[in-house]
Design a protein around this nucleic acid. Structure first.
Lengths: 196, 196
DNA sequence: TGATTAACTGAACGCATGTTCAAAACAAAC
DNA sequence: GTTTGTTTTGAACATGCGTTCAGTTAATCA
């Protein structure tokens, strides 16, 4: 076999994904054409089909990679107190999402552009992530340090609040990411705490 | 002038808006064609242009109406305690958004499909709404009943959390809207409270 | 009844879409 | 320097897009 090393396929492939991620986040999946992506990469549109069977798969792969990365990156430590675990979660969530705003945006906004089968896969992964937080809340309720009537609702409420950081936070602004983390942690801690 | 009463224009006009609202929410602005909207209304595509100059204006009008309605419907009562005002806000926000999920969805998801001028208008209205909540938080901090380091951050965090209800709540499920309101109020109240 | 005009149709405009594929370009292996 | 096989081009396919507009329909007023 000839032409394996030195080939452009291991360069163009990632570049296609990067361009798609950026453009989908900026303009939305439906508004971005394959020709736009090709233009961003610097190739003709036909070349894209060496790297994805179709546009839908390109979207799905981006979302799946993001969710896989999210689940792989978060390691819960169930040996410590529920409050310490929750603190870890809040810090992790804010940082991880802050570091990849385009992928986060796509994962939340483009769900309706997935085929039903692809949607089910992504939704299951999201559910897994939510379950990690709910485990922490349940542990805290069981030990008496948290007080929330319904751990499922609290889970969804906290994730919505934390993910919201991405919609407004910009590095170099009035506050550092550390400031933001500290303040969100204070709100989260108080929101679920058992009142004295 | 002939043909004013009995005309269809006061029927078709609202139906165009309803169809566009529904379809934009379901599939996204860019993915919906004028022909689809016309099909939903039961007219030919050309007829739509009696009711909107173009597709972009249709989107903008829907978003503007929603934001105007939001600002008109919420009446703050600055005569009572900050905690009572915050309770009112939480109830109002959850209910108002619950009652019009399609408009809410569009107002959050389709901002990037607005022209810069139209975006600025919608963004200013959103800012106005946020300012109403921030006023309440500031009053509570001033009176000592709330404790939040930065009222702007807290405002954005609370709104993200409250709006998140729309992404999962379905009437007829495990919980009533009253249950949800009560639990979110508990979390909000604790999150901003000055600890004993 | 006839004139008026708002509401709508149906077809057309130029252009963009996702996808396919034969042919060309090209880099490495022999 | 020829062979081999991966990568890319460039053109084409059928279809759909937003928008326009001359012409038809039908309800109202005089």
């Amino acid at each position: 076999m000839a032409r394996t090393a030195g080939s452009h396929s291991d360069i163009t492939g990632p570049r296609v994904r990067e361009a798609a991620l950026k453009l989908f986040a900026q303009q939305g999946f439906a508004a971005v054409s394959m020709r736009q992506i090709a233009g961003e990469v610097g190739v003709q549109v036909g070349a894209l089909y060496n790297y994805t069977p179709d546009k839908q798969s390109l979207l799905f792969d981006l979302m799946k990679s993001h969710m896989d990365g999210l689940l792989a990156a978060y390691a819960d430590n169930s040996a410590v107190t529920a409050e310490a675990r929750l603190h870890d979660f809040v810090q992790f969530h804010i940082r991880f999402h802050h570091d990849r705003p385009d992928a986060v945006f796509i994962a939340y906004m483009e769900l309706r552009n997935l085929t039903p089968e692809n949607f089910a896969v992504i939704e299951a992964l999201r559910r897994q992530y939510e379950d990690r937080l709910e485990d922490i809340l349940r542990a805290g309720v069981a030990s008496g340090s948290f007080d929330v009537p319904d751990t499922k609702i609290a889970t969804l409420a906290l994730i919505a609040m934390l993910t919201g950081v991405n919609t407004w936070f910009r590095a170099g602004g009035r506050l550092s990411l550390e400031d933001v983390e500290a303040q969100y942690w204070q709100m989260v801690r108080k929101a679920v705490s058992a009142e004295g």
